[in-house]
Design a protein around this nucleic acid. Sequence first.
DNA 1: TCTGGGGTCCTAGGACCC
DNA 2: TCTGGGGTCCTAGGACCC
Length: 425
Amino acid sequence: MYALVDCNNFFVSCERTLDPELDNKPVVVLSNNDGCVVSRSKEAKDLGIPMAAPAFKYKELFKKHDVQCFSAKFELYNFKSQRVIEISKAYVDKTDFEVYSIDELFLDLKSFKYINIYDYCVKIKDEINEQENIPVSIGIAPTKTLCKVANRIVKEFPDKFNGVYILDTSEKIEKALKWLNIGDVWGIGRRLAVKMKDNGVFKAWDLLQKPEMWVRKIMGIQGVRMVNELKGIRQLELDAPSPKKSIAVTRSFMEMLTKKEEVRERVETFGMYCSERLRKQNTCCKMVTVFVQTNRFRKDLPEYRKAMTRILPNPTNSSILIGRVVNELFEAIYKEGFHYKRAGVFVNDFVPEDQRQISLFEEDTQNQHLPVMKAMDAINKKFGKDKVRLGSMSGQNTFGRAKLSPEYEAFLKNNTLPEANFRFH
DNA sequence: TCTGGGGTCCTAGGACCC
DNA sequence: TCTGGGGTCCTAGGACCC
């Protein structure tokens, strides 16, 4: 069996560890720029605040019900995430876990044949709660997809299951799938949910009644795997941690930017963050993409969006070399006369730092840069982000963070934060 | 006025090869 | 002029996840 440990409304729960006064009150956490809702307490959900709700649309509601709003504090969430992972993984053999996202991890319970795994998971849940003050739900099942189902059941019936549910017998599975809406199955997004309903598939169970050919046609190979997983036939193993295959740094700006130099400064900064992350995992990239775009919601202003990609003659992770390319691409796509709202830099097509294939014809200065870059990283790690930076960076954050609490300032002072170590999906 | 950010995987179709 | 059949690799875009 697998177990999925999932933190309940994680970002909000992290906020509550800083301020217990927030317990039992409606709380939301907002994205960068305080743009939209990314985490909601149960009380906030009950008020009808949807996920990803644009904050400005709900201002009145927030006020009326005294909803507590916070800007996202990723240093804090990463820190708490690490703690939850440390506690959970101590309950299984060395590699029998997979960190799935910042607030979820799978455990492989295969080595526990003679203990009651339900009780065991209750212990995990209780320890996380006692040590870290983070409430979690644990779903246990033979496949990852069914773990997700079990987890949803835990969250849906909190009084009934006390945080842990085990989905093991075929009777229980059938009952669960007849209850679960098709749109809530792991891997069914908005698009597929519509297609499913058009074809009379409303519950997860209905999907299992469809012929394999149909599933294959509508959903591709993923669909066939999904059906098997729902039947309890394992298709997905736990993944070992792996280096990233692409890295992106993108931001919406607090204000729309109309000056070329302001936008340039932003994308160059994004390029440098990409380079830092590349060095952190000891890889070089062979491709760099830059994009800029206007505010797509402002129908009264002319819209413009453009992206451009460059394939590099020599793979690199030097901030200077990547910055140079970013700048050239920026020059090629930037057009005067627009109000820019968002921009970003992507890097992909990675090779390990020590396995670079060098072009015969282009000069390669990566190795000259590397020692300086690594020194820069070391200094920044010791003394703080952006303490040493390129001359092209302003060193200022141009996104807003209105609502930092005093508790959080204290947290930043008193804690040494570990590096983030989880995969996004 | 104000609408997030960072990832992965799969597929179809084009380019190219013999 | 007409024109086959089989394969691989790459890429852009779609769909999904948290």
